[in-house]
């Protein structure tokens, strides 16, 4: 499936800069394993210490994998103006991030775009 230009640009920039990122725990996530998916939101868990976005992604063979993306704390998101209702089950999203070393479908989300290509939970 052809990726939107915006996603390709974000991926390129993040790949260059990821080692400088201060917040991601290098103990659990590998900055060299970058992931990029598109799927349908099943849940936005508005919890501490990290909000978590669960996304159903259809594989090439038709099976569905439910991805678990780690977001910042809801406290931090709210202080930048975001609210839990900004994403809902059923929304289509594209997410790029850094994968957990130890798990194939857990990752830290670095950017989320909605179905129209607008960034969600961004600066």
């Amino acid at each position: 499936m052809k990726e939107p230009i915006l996603i390709l640009l974000i991926k390129a920039v993040i790949l260059m800069a990821v080692p400088a990122w201060a917040h991601h725990s290098p103990a659990a996530f590998d900055p060299n394993i970058e992931v990029s998916i598109t799927g349908s939101v099943t849940e936005l868990a508005w919890t501490s210490p990290h909000a978590r976005l669960y996304v159903d992604v259809v594989q090439e063979d038709g099976s569905v994998v439910n991805w678990n993306f780690e977001l910042p704390s809801p406290v931090g998101l709210m202080r930048k103006g975001w609210r839990r209702k900004d994403l809902a089950p059923g929304d289509t999203v594209s997410v790029i991030g850094i994968r957990a070393k130890a798990h194939p479908s857990i990752a830290i989300a670095d950017a989320i775009l909605d179905a129209e290509g607008n960034p969600v939970f961004s600066n």
Partner: peptide, 23 residues
């Protein structure tokens, strides 16, 4: 606060700013 390291300021998910002293 340490500046957000995000290279693509408009699109990257906003992080809680990390105080420099915490590092």
């Amino acid at each position: 606060l340490l500046k957000d390291q995000c290279p693509d300021r408009d699109n990257c998910i906003t992080q809680m700013d990390l105080p420099a002293d915490q590092r």
